[in-house]
Structures are given as structure tokens and as C-alpha cells.
Write a protein that binds this DNA or RNA. Structure first.
Lengths: 337, 337
DNA sequence: CTGAAAGCGCTTACAG
DNA sequence: CTGAAAGCGCTTACAG
């Protein structure tokens, strides 16, 4: 005997109406909580819901209300980098939780390739989601334009470089965070401070470098190297710096992951950290603590960033205009400085 | 002037029908690709779709077809562990991509708390998804039962401990992987091999320990410690082993993350790796390469696991019966042995 | 090959 | 406070 589950028809609102002896409209009213319903009717409906095992059909409800209670989380990095960086994971987890608190589901979309981008654009246009959260450092990406062109509420993580106030965002105060770190390096007596900057087509990359200059003024070019946020690029950039500025005694690295790479390069070059060179990172991601020595870094308030992104998005779904939001960062001192 | 986007009505299939001068039915036929349509009609419809900017409404389609082209990815670990372990991220990314290839969206649900579990169960029951992928090592979780009770196609990652063949799964061959590692440790001449096992309420934890015993037979209890897969627990377990079996010259650790912790404990205890003690991990996750020294480990075929999970799920959605699948692992030799 | 019509399962003014 | 009815935007037999 094979039991055929597909035959079991799911109970609909009609079944509940029938069982409770009330109309579909009344059942709907108690389920949505809108409109007046007598106490007796309510309990009758609730009871019928229980006996039938009724659960409202998501699509039918979405069609009727024009709301899906679903938002898209759009990740637009090339695949390999995607989860190498723990920041993405944290953001994803926090957003999922923040949305869950509002009983809203998150659908994850990855837009690495051009084809992916198309698919995501179409999906968002399908009205399957009420809004979108966009996470991408590379603001050159056309995705911001494409998504905002759909007219759907959109909040991006990080300050978009080339957009006006028409697009909502929440970002950490990268520039100020960088300033704090460089100040710190100076305060502990370092005199030849260098930096490994992030990609200059990302707002984080740009602003952290600006913060560096804010404190140090104009600086010899040989004191600046640029990476792409990856571990490997940090290692390479550190080697460059050592070659071009052998007298360096400190380096501010624009991400923890790159800093981990820099530490390795320093180790191989026989420079002690922090005795010979102080190393400061950025992010306070999980790698920071595990570095040898543990990394002094700048903490990004991921949890709060996620919550604010979600809040902003929900407000926009309810009709609010887009807004930008800058959250403060904090210096976390460990053993590398 | 404020432009009111919400006023712009989205084009519907009726608009396309009108513009193309054909009926709604015909438009639908060309869009779904079902049924016969003349060449002229087809091009007329396609043209109208372009001029109107029409995109089919996801909910309407879902309601009519009873298919959502969406599956749930259910993560059932306590939150803090969730993304500490890179395995989850990899699996998530790979599944998203594998589904994308079939134009199916992934909705991410996290079921850490009991309330979460309720929400996820309800969501799945709402018919908003065509199937579910469940990722959880802890098979004690009632989630497997709850989800399979909804009658929705379900595939779990890892072999469920207490279920029969009624539930579909794909798992790496944990036991054989463990055997390979322990063999390897013996081949390189180690005589006092210990192990840090994973949680014994997970299939991975159980089977990797079984593999250990397969090679070594029954072993002094003092040579076995148990962790919970976390970095910290690996450190603690290693300290225990050093205390109880000071003569140990090798340790097989049931996860890379725990192995990283074990390495730290060994370092602090002044034991050299691999000279004094050889360390073998499990997973071949990104931490393995970054350990000092880089970790010899057992590679889990995550990419393939994800692809097979998705394939199995899609087959079940199309009516196939559940099946189990065991994928081979491989030893990756690095500097820690 | 195409159109008219019923149906998917909800919600929500509108009367009463 | 409640019911009847229209409507959300699609798909899919059914005639022709």
C-alpha cells in the first residue's frame, strides 16, 4: 500500500467556514484581525481552524492583499568572495532574525554574474517581494539602479557612492572609524604609519582612506597600498609596503581579513607585531580574535546595521520616503598594537 | 513635485492581451510555453510584453498553478553557532546557486528557538514553498518530524539518526572519512592516537567516532574527549586529553574548527605540531588552510552535497519517492601531520 | 490554433 | 456584527 499524500486536499477557508457554520468573510475577519466579530463567532472560527488544521494559503493572500510579507536579500559580490568574508554571513543572519520578528520571510538571491543579475531583477519585478535589501560594496554595480528602477522599496548596506538622497542606506561611519584607528596608532608613538586601503570603487574603501588622510594629512604615496578586501590581497599589499617603505612601524588595514594576510607577510619578513610594527584592522569580524596576535580593530555595529536596514525598509513599505543613516563605530584594542 | 510610484499600476496579463489584440488565454499560453500558438500570435504577444513591461505576478501564478517555485532552506542550529561554522555558509551558497539554475528561489529560515520553529512550521504549511532543505546536525531536533508531517517534499543534510527510509537525505561518508584519517595517522608512525569527537547526538559525531574505533578497536577512555564542534570546545577537549593521556602523539579531531582550538591548546602546552603531536581535522573548511600549521583534514564534498540535495528535492517535488545518498570524502594532507 | 469561462483561495468594501 | 459578491492576476480544460 502506497499512501498518496498529494491526494490529501489542504483545507481552505471554505472548509473552515463550513465547519464553523459562518461565512467565509467572517472567517477571514477573525484571521486577519480586521473588522468587528462577535466573541462567539471568533471562538467558533478558531475552533474550526483547529479541527481542520487550516493554514491560510500564502499566494491567495498575497494576491488579494498585494503584499507578500517577503523581502529579497540581494548579495551582489562575485561568488568566491561571498562567504569568505564573515561580514556577509553576519548581516544575513541578523537581517533574517530582524525580519522574522515581523513575521516576514527573507529570500536570498545571489547576483554574481550578469545572468544572475537579470534573474534577480525579474524576480523582484514579479511582485513576489515587498522590498529588497541590497548588500554590495561595489557601488559601480548597476544593481542599485536596476532595483530602484523597479520602484520597489530598497535599502542598501553602505553609502552608495554615486546616488543622491533618493536611495535609502545604512552605513557605519567608516571615515570616523579610520580616524580613531590612526589616532590610536599615533598615540602609541608610531611615526611611520602606512595603510592598506580597500578597493576605491567602494564607499568603505574610499572613506577609510579619507579618514587616514584626515589624521595624517598628505602622505608619501609609498605608504599606501590597495587591496580588494581578500586575505591574499592583504598579504600582497603588505609585501609591497615593506619593500617601498622599509621603515614603517605601523599599518592600518581597511579590513580584518586583509589584516590577517598582512600579519602573515610581516611574520615571514621577520617583523614582530606589535613590537616592530603595530597592525590595526577594520570590522571586528570573527577572524580578528583568532589572529596571532589578536587584532586591534574597528568594530562595525552589524547587528544594529541589520536592524536599522530592516526598520527603514519596513517604513518605506508603509510609505515613508527613503533616508540615510550613519552608525558610529568603536575602537577595539587587542594585542596587535 | 513628488512623484508617486505607488500609483503606477503594474501591467497585468490583461494589458498585454489588449495591446496584442489577443485573448488572455493565448497570452498565457505563449508565456508558459504550453499549448499551440501560431508564430504571428507569439511574436505579437512578445512584442506587447516588451512595450508594456509586463512581468507575471508571482502570487497569481502560484495560486493558479499550486506551485511557488520557491523552496525553504531551514537552518536549525542555535544562533551563535550558526555562521561561526563556515560549512553552513558554503552549503547555503551552493544550494542557492543550484536552485537558481532551475529558476527557483530560496527562502532562508532560521529555527533556533522554539518560537522560530513554530514560525517555520507554519510558513512551510502555508504552501509558500514547494519543498524544504533542512540543515541541522542535531538530529534530536523535532524539526525533521514536524516538517515531514506537513507532507511537503523534504531533504535533509546528513543522515538522520532515528528515521527510516521514509526521509530523504544526502550525507558525506563520515565513517569512512574518519577511517582514512586514523589510518593515515598510523601510517606516519603514531602510536598513541587520541580523538576529539563531535556531539554524540549528531550523526557526524557518532560516525566519525565509529570510524576511529574501526581502525583502532576498543581504546582507553582517556584517549577520547568530546566537543560540540566549536573552536572553544576543541581547546578545552585538547587540554583534557593532554592531562589524561600525556603520552599522546596524535589527535584526530572531528571538525576543523575544533582542531583550530586544539592547535592553540597544544601550542600553549609547548607541544610542537606535527613533531610532537600530529593533528588531523575534518571538513576541509576555510579555517583548515589558515591554521598554523595548515591542517591535514578530510574533505567534505559540499558542492556536490548541495547539488544532490537540490536534485533530490526537485525529483521529489515531481513525485519521486525519497532516497538516501552517501558521498565519498577524501584525505587532504597538509603540514599538521 | 484561439477565445470564453471557470477556478485557484483569499480579502474587503458594501449592504443590511 | 455578518453575509453576498466582487476582485486580486493568473492558468487550463473545453469548445470550436
Amino acid at each position: 500500500m502506497v499512501e498518496d499524500r498529494s491526494t490529501q486536499r489542504r483545507p481552505t477557508i471554505n472548509d473552515v467556514a463550513e465547519v464553523s457554520g459562518l461565512s467565509r468573510g467572517t472567517v477571514s475577519r477573525v484571521l486577519t484581525g480586521e473588522g468587528y466579530v462577535s466573541k462567539e463567532s471568533r471562538t467558533a472560527v478558531l475552533k474550526a481552524v483547529r479541527t481542520t488544521g487550516y493554514v491560510a494559503n500564502r499566494h491567495a493572500r498575497g494576491l488579494a492583499t498585494q503584499r507578500s510579507h517577503t523581502v529579497a536579500f540581494v548579495l551582489s559580490e562575485p561568488q568566491h568572495r561571498l562567504f569568505e568574508d564573515p561580514n556577509f554571513s553576519i548581516l544575513l543572519r541578523e537581517c533574517t532574525q530582524a525580519l522574522a520578528a515581523h513575521d516576514i520571510m527573507l529570500v536570498l538571491t545571489i547576483a554574481g554574474s550578469e545572468a544572475d543579475r537579470k534573474r534577480v531583477g525579474r524576480f523582484v519585478s514579479e511582485g513576489g517581494v515587498d522590498g529588497a535589501l541590497l548588500v554590495s560594496d561595489h557601488t559601480g554595480s548597476s544593481l542599485v539602479d536596476e532595483l530602484s528602477a523597479t520602484g520597489i522599496p530598497l535599502v542598501v548596506c553602505g553609502r552608495p557612492l554615486e546616488h543622491g538622497q533618493d536611495i535609502a542606506y545604512v552605513a557605519a561611519d567608516d571615515r570616523d572609524g579610520a580616524r580613531r584607528m590612526v589616532h590610536h596608532l599615533r598615540e602609541i608613538g608610531r611615526e611611520h604609519i602606512t595603510t592598506i586601503a580597500g578597493p576605491q570603487d567602494t564607499s568603505g574603501g574610499v572613506e577609510r582612506l579619507e579618514g587616514f588622510h584626515d589624521v595624517l594629512g598628505s602622505v608619501d604615496e609609498n605608504r599606501i597600498a590597495v587591496g580588494d578586501y581578500s586575505h591574499q590581497s592583504g598579504e600582497r599589499a603588505m609585501r609591497q609596503l615593506l619593500e617601498r617603505s622599509p621603515d614603517l612601524d605601523a599599518v592600518f588595514v581597511a579590513s580584518d581579513l586583509m589584516a590577517a594576510g598582512a600579519l602573515e607577510a610581516l611574520h615571514r619578513a621577520g617583523r614582530r607585531v606589535p613590537e616592530d610594527v603595530a597592525v590595526g584592522g577594520f570590522d571586528d569580524s570573527s577572524v580578528a580574535e583568532r589572529c596571532v596576535p589578536p587584532l586591534t580593530t574597528v568594530r562595525q555595529p552589524w547587528s544594529r546595521i541589520s536592524k536599522e536596514m530592516v526598520r527603514l525598509l519596513l517604513d518605506m513599505i508603509d510609505g515613508d520616503t527613503p533616508a540615510g543613516m550613519i552608525l558610529p563605530t568603536a575602537l577595539v584594542r587587542r594585542k596587535s598594537t
